[in-house]
Design a protein around this nucleic acid. Structure first.
Lengths: 151, 151
DNA sequence: TATTGTTATACTCTATAACTATA
DNA sequence: TATAGTTATAGAGTATAACAATA
């Protein structure tokens, strides 16, 4: 049917697809994609502004704004850091945790549906290869780590 | 070492990685990611506003703005449609085509580097599986179709 | 001095609603 | 009436630079 697609192109298209899923799921919860991402990054526990910037690849002033807007909606709070009075840590409120979890689950669900037709062996190989790529590329991040959350 | 990652998580992380590559490459050419995407969507030939909206999953007013900014920089032009005087088609200028090509190549290069270590068989399987997913999901799109461009 | 975070500022991106012009 | 596109408006996202407070 369609001509074979090279790997780079397939990766780009897949990325668009995942982004779209993420955006749509976020929207279902009245969140922007970035806000949902922020909530997901906090599920494992409170994180400081600087580290959030590293995790989300944003400048610190961008983080300030993002946190401001989400805080205004009551989804996170700035918690003072007792050991360093310059710093604060961003923590999910109950409502924020709820939304973060639901967004996360929504994305996983939709992606699982999307890959449901693949044979088990292919799924495993895909998961292994892709996670290898990301781990190799950004040695040491964790924006979206459900394993750490539930396990 | 690290615990096995489920497929959905691997897909999300991969998507972030690709987005980051895209953003960085675009920035190297003084473009935003969205602008580079627009240029790439025009490489195969002029496209109308409505179709651009479908392709890029944006409302038409968003397309208007995006095209405005890129036109202001001399990278595209609005060409009148002879058969429908309401419509126009967006075409790359020489400079825009140049930047579009270079962005596209830059992304492909970086992604190829990233996947260079994978065995050939795995690469093929990945490409086939991922392109299958995207083709199935968004039956009939083409944002980033280098095959059509060069071949 | 270096680091943590915020403010000021200026764009870009995006959607919704109302509009114009053509079909 | 329906479609192609623009305008008006408002808010979100982002970066750079300058700043404050603390280490």
């Amino acid at each position: 049917m369609s001509e074979p697609m090279d790997l780079a192109t397939a990766l780009v298209r897949l990325s668009h697809l995942v982004q779209r899923v993420f955006t749509e799921v976020s929207r279902d919860h009245e969140l922007t994609q970035q806000q949902a991402q922020l909530l997901c990054a906090l599920i494992a526990g409170p994180v400081g502004m600087t580290e959030l910037g590293r995790t989300l690849h944003l400048e610190k002033s961008s983080i300030t704004g993002l946190v401001d807007r989400v805080e205004r909606r009551g989804l996170v709070t700035r918690v003072r850091d007792d050991h360093d009075r310059r710093a604060c840590r961003i923590a999910l409120t109950e409502k924020g945790a709820e939304l973060g979890e639901r967004s996360h689950e929504g994305v996983v669900e939709r992606l699982d549906e999307l890959t449901a037709d693949l044979p088990a062996g292919t799924r495993e190989l895909l998961a292994a290869a892709l996670s290898g790529l990301t781990t190799q590329a950004d040695a040491g991040r964790q924006v979206f780590e459900p394993a750490n959350v539930r396990a």
